[in-house]
Nucleic acid binder design. Structure first.
Lengths: 153, 153
DNA sequence: ATATTATACTTGTATATACAAATATAAAAA
DNA sequence: TTTTTATATTTGTATATACAAGTATAATAT
């Protein structure tokens, strides 16, 4: 289905506009489906993202600014995100002894267990959307998306 | 810049995963830039979207469910979105006389003027991102994005 | 040693969004 | 006609996000 049919417009869209709309819509669809995957675990997408970042630390703590710079959406609220994870006992936090301004955040075993349980479902989610494209097309889509947004970065 | 460098991961990503991340990130970048365009007009992206839908009606009113079905992100809150536009006098609303359950929303002249002023800036925004791709690549990206998300639609 | 600036994080506030429940009207069924 | 069901929209509530201001600590300059 073309994006025009989805937003039910009769307007003629330029390629530039169609891409914007297609990106918005794709993100929306992907996100909605991913939220369904996470729902039984009572995690938001951003919370999951933080857990992934922490697991990637392989036992080393991450402080707030490290977490923030690794997130896709640079929300200014890593604090409150970590608060939520703390309440669920998926992470621990303590003041860094070397620099008391910093906070050391670590994923707990419980957090690792949740991620481990989610791993296959996350892969399945990725495959669900990519299964209509062959390997070459997948490469192409990645390349084009990177080229598209890479204005001055 | 590759998505891996942006989220500063050393992990090896599958094509499926990279696409998900690239779509998320692209939407983020595009959206952030678009919000900058809208900021001087005190409009959110969704508010702008509603105005566009109303202009597309060419003088005919749109009721809430029509607006909702034409939006990219199906927020359940068209009411409050229209409330905001009403406060700024960009739209009018009245109960439909034929069916008093329905609400007729119309864009005002002021709303049309704002859109008209924004038109070139919106085009510029689209071009800003697409200028790194040639026509063929733009077509390709649109086609791949549509193919990507079109699972069971 | 004290004052200034920078860094790291937290908090406040306003707005946005998600989801469920509530309200009002209309259409269909008993 | 009364009841039931469907439709269209609104409201409540909890959570998320954006942005600015505040706090604590550390580093640098005077």
């Amino acid at each position: 289905m073309k994006i025009e049919d989805i937003i039910k417009t009769t307007a003629v869209l330029s390629n530039s506009n169609r891409i914007i709309l297609n990106i918005m819509y794709a993100q929306n669809v992907v996100n909605e489906k991913f939220n369904e995957v996470l729902k039984p675990y009572d995690l938001s997408g951003e919370q999951y993202n933080v857990l992934r970042i922490l697991r990637g630390q392989k036992g080393n703590p991450a402080n707030m600014s490290v977490i923030q710079e690794r997130m896709i959406a640079k929300t200014s609220n890593t604090t409150r995100l970590v608060d939520k994870l703390l309440l669920k006992e998926l992470v621990t936090r303590k003041v860094c002894p070397e620099n008391r301004r910093k906070i050391e955040v670590l994923i707990t075993q419980k957090g690792l267990d949740v991620l481990h349980e989610l791993d296959p479902k996350v892969i399945e989610h990725g495959n669900y959307f990519s299964k209509n494209l062959n390997d070459e097309e997948l490469e192409q889509l990645n390349t084009l998306l990177e080229k598209y947004r890479n204005q001055y970065i």
